[in-house]
């Protein structure tokens, strides 16, 4: 470990980083919040939700996939970028069917929490009303693709941590959808368990654990008590140090 102090500046705040860290890694380590939905410390970054896009000069880059480099001057918490983040959140809302008042995830859902955080008051864009399949075949787990935001977290968690490779995203454009890696394409046929990280990491109500409805009453749920900004700082996959030793070459994207 060299003693050279490398720093970047996020919104004029000086932040140290170690070579190999992304802007997001450095920000999280310094407890600086850059809104995001598809990133989870300990899993390889994906860069698909684009909420963490920040500006370096006139370049727009995703904080979760861009390496931190000495003396970067980064803008993140600006009205323009937060407006863009709100619009991206609205897009995710209209693409799926987010039935918040009747969703079991309500109050624990990151998409909803992000909407609160960014002051989103309406959908703004017209709804897509897409048809997407529900998979209720598994005894313990329900998959409702209409609430999936294609964040790829379950895919990475299953592959990298659970070692089961249960999920993948298939198809192009708005046809993109989550598929299950089993002969029938059904969850019942897969080795997914309700304790798997892939099951619990879903930020929205797309993967739900059955027989557990409303154990915590509405009003007492995570984002009824905290903002997403507060909870994000606590997130980390316990086994993540182990992960670092596994090669991630083919999961670069």
């Amino acid at each position: 470990m060299s003693a050279i102090q490398n720093t970047i500046r996020i919104d004029n705040q000086e932040i140290p980083f170690t070579p190999g860290q992304t802007i997001m890694d450095a920000a999280l380590a310094a407890k600086v919040y850059i809104p995001h939905l598809c990133h989870y410390p300990g899993l390889p970054p994906s860069g698909n939700c684009r909420l963490c896009v920040v500006e370096i000069g006139n370049r727009s880059v995703a904080a979760c996939t861009t390496p931190a480099a000495a003396d970067q001057a980064i803008c993140s918490n600006t009205p323009e970028l937060n407006q863009a983040r709100k619009a991206l959140t609205q897009m995710l809302f209209v693409e799926g069917d987010h039935i918040c008042p009747s969703c079991e995830k309500t109050g624990n859902c990151k998409l909803q929490a992000m909407a609160y955080y960014l002051g989103m008051l309406d959908d703004h864009f017209p709804q897509f009303y897409q048809r997407r399949e529900i998979d209720a075949s598994h005894p313990d787990i329900l998959l409702d693709r209409k609430r999936c935001i294609l964040c790829d977290l379950c895919v990475r968690a299953s592959r990298e941590v659970d070692g089961k490779n249960v999920f993948a995203i298939a198809g192009r454009g708005t046809q993109a959808h989550l598929i299950v890696n089993s002969p029938s394409g059904k969850l019942a046929d897969s080795p997914l368990a309700k304790t798997d990280l892939a099951t619990t990491i879903c930020p929205v109500g797309a993967i739900l654990i059955k027989q557990r409805g409303y154990q915590v009453p509405i009003g007492k749920r995570i984002y009824d008590q905290h903002t997403i900004r507060e909870t994000t700082m606590q997130e980390h996959i316990p086994s993540c140090d182990k992960l670092k030793h596994k090669g991630h070459q083919d999961t670069e994207r």
Binding site: L51, M91, A176
Partner: peptide, 21 residues
């Protein structure tokens, strides 16, 4: 573009569809 977007990222996947509509 809506037809050819690979669907990976939010702004292009959903945005190109919204532009088209």
């Amino acid at each position: 573009f809506a037809h050819e977007s690979c669907g990976f990222c939010t702004p292009c996947r959903i945005g190109t569809q919204l532009l088209k509509n």
